[in-house]
Nucleic acid binder design. Structure first.
Lengths: 226, 226
DNA sequence: TTCATACTTCGATCCTAATCGAAGCATTAA
DNA sequence: TTAATGCTTCGATTAGGATCGAAGTATGAA
């Protein structure tokens, strides 16, 4: 009964509303300062500072110094995955926040999940990649096929640049809104970056919503058909 | 920022040590009474009662009346999956309980995860099933192939009996000790039950450990080779 | 009916942890 | 150096919730 990992510590870290707000804000993938996070969490800077310390000690956050600012990000992809799976569970159980604003549909359509594309479009992308055998999926282990390599090159992504230490190229991540998987990993990250630089999509400042341009939408459908 | 599901509620439910102990005890898959759970959590019956009420309201637990006993189980497979993924995360981040007892190696080898086999043997089983194409895996979606159906029949499992409303036949579940997936779903449950009834394995009373008999171990290796 | 078991509710206590004001430290700009 | 910004530490307060004793309810056994 006293065996194994300690799940209570993790739960209590996420269980405080202020800390949950901080984590949700960072799930956007952007690095944020303590002051910005304080505003997100609606608590003072002092309180935020103490929360950030605890989250960092728990291995959930990463702190980067830059000038007189300190930027915080989620520690790694695992944190993002964990948060998304908790979001999925909470959504299914009806643990919804009071205010499900007008942004909700847009959020379900396309949003940032830490550093890759989530929502219906994210799910469609992974489905399409698997359907056309650009990605071969066995269980949660996804691998880029030979034709998949050609495919990403066509999009202007260097396949060699995807190989990074301690990060998988392809990884599946459960989507809370669609209850299906979308693509994470270095490929997921690079694809989203590419959508930005190709002008297909833009980040909605201050939220996790990704807005596709009309042209970008057409291109996306052409490259990732259902 | 105030959009989407409420993750803090979920976190705080799991974040209390007593409640975490209760959930861990139920992860064994056994239905336990309030009195038994009180012993597991090392708190009085009154306190346990209040915890159980909260966990049930949060959709994590299910309560079944039977005579003057009230049996508690995890609400569904999703709860088990969520807990295992939190366990995996906590293990990776080094959030381990003080006492990692002598049972730890046995626990890593073969244990019960809610209602199916987990640990190294659980992972080996799923690997083998996929390798010999008894199960076809695309992403987290696993399906039993035609030869897989013959295979389970050979083991004395009726494939028709696996079809249950609102439960997938095959499902992958992340393993906290092996950091790989093992098999959940009705098939996972039935296979473990079959191991028991064939006399291959026995439950270690009072823990989640599954002990294979020498004969059972040989049979297991023969049926699920690496 | 009477008693026992299993659990819940109530009420009081106690303790942790979240919160914020004030002061301190660090970095940059002028 | 001085001033300003960004963040941390300290200390005191407060609130929420975990805890348990005592009493109450429900079910079953004798």
């Amino acid at each position: 009964m006293k065996e194994g990992p300690d799940i209570a510590l993790l739960g209590s870290l996420i269980g405080d509303p202020a800390r949950a707000n901080i984590l949700m804000a960072l799930l956007s993938g952007k690095a944020l300062t303590a002051t910005e996070l304080a505003a997100e969490a609606s608590v003072t800077l002092q309180t935020t500072s103490s929360h950030l310390k605890k989250l960092e000690a728990g291995g959930l956050l990463h702190r980067r110094k830059q000038g007189r600012h300190k930027y915080f990000t989620l520690a790694d992809d695992d944190v993002g995955s964990l948060l998304e799976s908790m979001l999925g569970f909470a959504a299914k159980k009806g643990h919804t926040r009071v205010r499900t604003g007008p942004k909700d549909p847009a959020l379900r359509n396309a949003r940032v999940c830490y550093n890759h594309l989530a929502g219906e479009m994210g799910v469609q992308m992974l489905d399409s990649l698997i359907r056309y055998e650009h990605i071969i999926g066995v269980d949660t282990e996804l691998t880029l096929s030979d034709q998949g390599i050609s495919f990403v090159e066509l999009l202007g992504i260097d396949p060699e640049a995807l190989k990074k230490p301690r990060r998988p190229v392809c990884k599946s991540c459960l989507d809370w809104s669609a209850r299906r998987s979308h693509l994470a990993g270095t490929l997921g990250t690079e694809l989203l970056n590419r959508f930005y630089s190709l002008g297909w999509a833009k980040r909605d400042e201050g939220s996790r919503i990704v807005t596709f341009t009309p042209k970008g939408s057409t291109q996306f459908q052409a490259h990732f058909p259902i």
